[in-house]
């Protein structure tokens, strides 16, 4: 299925993603990694570590509603894969991101901008396996 090429919206959205990461560092001194934030909620270790993550996640979840309130239209998403693939993919994402200590936000945005050697290895690795997976599913197995 084709999707529209949206360089300006994507770049603008990227600026805000970066701003969110910088604001978190400025206020709380933390890296904005969704894997770390989410695993901090799943494995709550202390109340204070849990509560700022919960507040942040709440803000993230409110974002589409705020966009709806301002623009009158809810951001649309298209899920082109079946529920089994969502579930299996999700377990693999959680396992891998936890083992590799980060995902697109932690390694991809925060790590690369810090020129972290670990992130400079992690990002090309997960980009390559994601591209290979999509190629195999769409063009080899004909999913």
């Amino acid at each position: 299925m084709e999707t529209l090429f949206t360089p300006f919206a994507s770049f603008g959205g990227g600026l805000l993603i970066g701003l969110g990461a910088v604001l978190l560092m400025l206020g709380l001194g933390r890296i904005l990694g969704a894997t770390g934030i989410m695993s901090g909620l799943v494995f709550a270790e202390s109340g204070s570590e849990f509560s700022w993550r919960a507040a942040m996640v709440l803000g993230m979840i409110l974002a589409p509603g705020v966009i709806f309130a301002v623009t009158g239209s809810m951001p649309q998403i298209t899920v082109p894969v079946n529920p089994l693939m969502i579930a299996v993919g999700g377990v693999i994402v959680g396992f891998g991101a936890s083992l590799g200590s980060g995902c697109t936000s932690g390694h991809g945005v925060c790590g690369l901008s810090r020129l972290s050697v670990r992130s400079l290895v992690a990002v090309p690795t997960f980009m390559a396996t994601a591209a290979l997976t999509v190629f195999l599913i769409r063009h080899v197995f004909g999913g």
């Binding site: 693939m85 693999i92 990002v123 396996t129």
Partner: peptide, 15 residues
């Protein structure tokens, strides 16, 4: 871990 994460991302399309 990163390689595994990418596989899941490519299957589900969400991170």
């Amino acid at each position: 871990g990163s390689a595994i994460f990418g596989i899941g991302w490519g299957i589900a399309g969400f991170c």
